[in-house]
Design a protein around this nucleic acid. Structure first.
Lengths: 208, 208
DNA sequence: ATGTGTTTGTTAAATGTTTGACATACCCGA
DNA sequence: TCGGGTATGTCAAACATTTAACAAACACAT
């Protein structure tokens, strides 16, 4: 078995991907770890070390080919394959996610919206109809949905997450204020917005 | 000068705060680092180490008083003071933030909404009227706004952020897809949702 | 009041991450 | 084709974080 790559590295990959995308758009053909380090405000050493976890993408005396590296990082992040995403809980945040067009460009397609609120069920958001959560099983059948965004009250998060796992969902993008790390057979990415706001609050307060 | 506390520790504090809040609601009076570690799935050693960065909140042979510890962590995170927050960019995500009632309970009050879109300006969201961004200076005057949530296209993020800093904003909660780390005189907390989605994608893909 | 058991605060070891250094490989101009 | 310059990949050192271990302090039952 290959050696595990640390999450510290993985957290940085999307950022590399973003900067390389911008370089690509600007028509830049090659970039050295040194130049990239200046743009990104990280050390060149870290960039080389990070990339080398996945293979030798560069060339001595030349640097990295922007297009090639961009695509390779895309593959590493699984962006070469399309991901079908369902959003569970169509409140304001759920709607924001359903409407966020950037995701489509990264290969994430919103293929289903679910809620319990009769005022919301039946509505169409960004071209996708909101279904009742009781229809989850039927709607997901043979649809190859691998990611679910959970934007619902915490009281219902775990129960719903379990059901999603049963239905074959591989990843949960969890916005509910509970930690779902103890679930088996699924990868959870917790996004606790209020936590980041509190971090900001701490860092402001500290400076005073 | 006191020794700097690492961001690794700070990132965990909101989670402690959340668990303690739940214990408090459940009427629990005291908790040991050992019991808490089992609930939170972290080591007891880490809990004690983390808390001791800020002072000795516990007592040997007893553990920690839940209410006291909850309040102390609140103070550490700056939640004892009220924070006025403005949201710049009232798209779907901006509206989601404006409507998210949890923040109020933590001492964050949305006191202003701003956008450039004439279809949005003048609308009222969750009791707050949307103003045109040109009125920013006038609206912020003497209002003691210390946090701005930036939910606007990346092209305008940096320019707007600079203006906000000029107007006295101390913290930027940045949802725009640019890194604003190079700004002076302000604390930035970048929240790149698509980055977390890509991390999730990586972790799913890896397991296959 | 005393002694046993509990649990902290703290030190030191273990582990993980980041940075610096440099040999090696390759580009590119002449 | 050759040689100086450039930039990678990698190794080891420096630094940071996490875990384990334990003495000191206190609670609580008797």
């Amino acid at each position: 078995m290959e050696k595990e790559i640390s999450q510290a590295v993985i957290r940085r990959m999307p950022r590399y991907y973003r900067y390389l995308g911008e370089l690509l758009d600007a028509g830049t053909e090659r970039i050295s770890s040194n130049d990239l380090s200046k743009r990104m405000h990280v050390t060149a050493s870290q960039i080389r070390q990070d990339l080398n976890n996945f293979g030798g993408f560069g060339q001595q005396g030349y640097g990295y080919n922007v297009k090639f590296l961009y695509e390779e990082i895309g593959k590493i992040l699984g962006l070469n394959e399309k991901h079908n995403v369902v959003v569970i809980g169509v409140g304001h945040l759920g709607q924001a996610i359903a409407n966020y067009s950037n995701f489509a460009g990264l290969g994430f397609e919103i293929t289903g919206l679910f809620d319990v609120d009769p005022d919301v069920v039946g509505k169409e958001i960004n071209g996708v109809t909101v279904h009742h959560i009781d229809d989850l099983e039927e709607c997901l059948k043979d649809r190859n949905v691998d990611i679910a965004a959970l934007t619902l009250p915490k009281s219902q998060a775990e129960k719903t997450a379990r059901k999603l796992v049963e239905l074959g969902v591989k990843g949960i993008w969890n916005f509910a204020l509970v930690d779902l790390d103890e679930l088996d057979d699924v990868t959870v990415e917790n996004v606790h917005l209020s936590d980041t706001l509190m971090q900001l609050s701490y860092n402001i307060t500290k400076k005073k």
